[in-house]
Write a protein that binds this DNA or RNA. Structure first.
Lengths: 203, 203
DNA sequence: ATATTTGTTAACCATATGGTTAAACTAAAT
DNA sequence: ATTTAGTTTAACCATATGGTTAACAAATAT
């Protein structure tokens, strides 16, 4: 029996699909374009992934599973809240700078199909906020932090870190900067954002 | 001569197109679906708007021109920075709660076609950040605010206000709340977000 | 060696889709 | 009443698109 060489063609397809789905989204992506990108016959896409939907889901799961550990870093880490925020902010911005498509892609497709996230919730490794909430409350009790709800703080951290990537074109226009200026601005945020948050919540 | 009744059919089409484009985006939207939504013949869409692209642009400009004045409120208002942030946060969250599709739609389509924002920049009423930056610097000089770059503060304000709407499905999953809980959470943010920002920047 | 399974391609198919056309309809102007 | 110009519809068209098929090539098992 000939063994599947899944490492080769199948992976080439996935990488090509990633590039195309990232840029065009599910609706805008074309199977032919993915085939061209992978430099193979269009039939191969169906041979390995059956349908556009399944190929898309492979790409989406892949993207989501890349992002989830980043969030778990802040949620399940053992350090103090301040340390966690500083570490997360630097790491996350570095990480996304290398994969700038990721947050936009995930958010866009979840808006298109909100049920999608329910499938994710079941999988282990899906970010859970409970431990983080407890730690916030402990530090509030200790007088280290001002009172704030863990949910709201978590959303604020996400917002300040992720939004600049999701809204990049809008920000470039409003702040009136080119790609270089934008890159610098994002780089500055690695420390700016952490300071901004810590300033706000420290008692 | 029969007079154009542009107010009627043309407007019905635009409203239907708005609903469909909001939910499906340019790529996911179908002309037939818009026609069905408007309860008219598909040919009418082309009669009044020539092409899908032009109909889409009508919807997009409409949406953008609805959002722009909201941002100008904070950028060109005469009150103190703290007042501006408090007013903007309450008003903006109220406004978007009534049009929850708006930010997602605009951001999604700008990512699909970043050149689009360049056309917007020329139009008068396009948000400009310069006055806001000066006012920040003045209040920093006066010792009212801690040092912060106007651009970064502006991005932070945008992020904290807009992100929860753009990433609604993600947030609902992470924070593990239903629609009702999400609504309450957003309602709370009308004051939470302003406090969070002010806490951070006040000297 | 050869049968068998797996990988790959070109050609094809059904349907969806944006867009067009020509004719019918409506209502005001003459 | 008839002309005139805008409005609306059904039918149509060309092309794009996701997906399939059948034949062929390559690898593996017997």
């Amino acid at each position: 029996m000939a063994q599947k060489k899944d490492t080769n063609t199948e992976h080439i397809i996935l990488k090509a699909a990633k590039r195309v789905f990232q840029n065009k989204g599910m609706d805008g992506a074309r199977m032919q374009e993915i085939a061209d990108e992978a430099k193979i016959n269009k039939a191969m896409l169906h041979y390995y992934y059956r349908s556009k939907q399944l190929l898309f889901e492979a790409v989406f799961n892949n993207a989501f599973m890349l992002l989830a550990p980043q969030l778990n870093a802040i949620l399940n880490d053992e350090s103090s809240v301040e340390e966690k925020i500083r570490n997360f902010t630097t790491n996350y911005i570095s990480f996304i700078s290398k994969h700038p498509y990721l947050p936009t892609f995930i958010i866009q497709e979840l808006n298109r199909n909100p049920d999608f996230v329910l499938k994710m919730k079941d999988k282990k490794g899906f970010p859970n906020i409970e431990k983080f909430k407890k730690e916030i409350n402990v530090e509030i009790q200790k007088g280290i932090l001002k009172p704030i709800k863990g949910e709201q703080l978590f959303i604020n951290i996400m917002a300040l870190n992720i939004f600049p990537f999701v809204a990049a074109p809008l920000i470039k226009a409003f702040v009136n900067i080119d790609d270089k200026g934008y890159k610098q601005l994002v780089e500055d945020r690695k420390t700016e954002v952490a300071d901004f948050i810590i300033n706000s919540i420290k008692a």
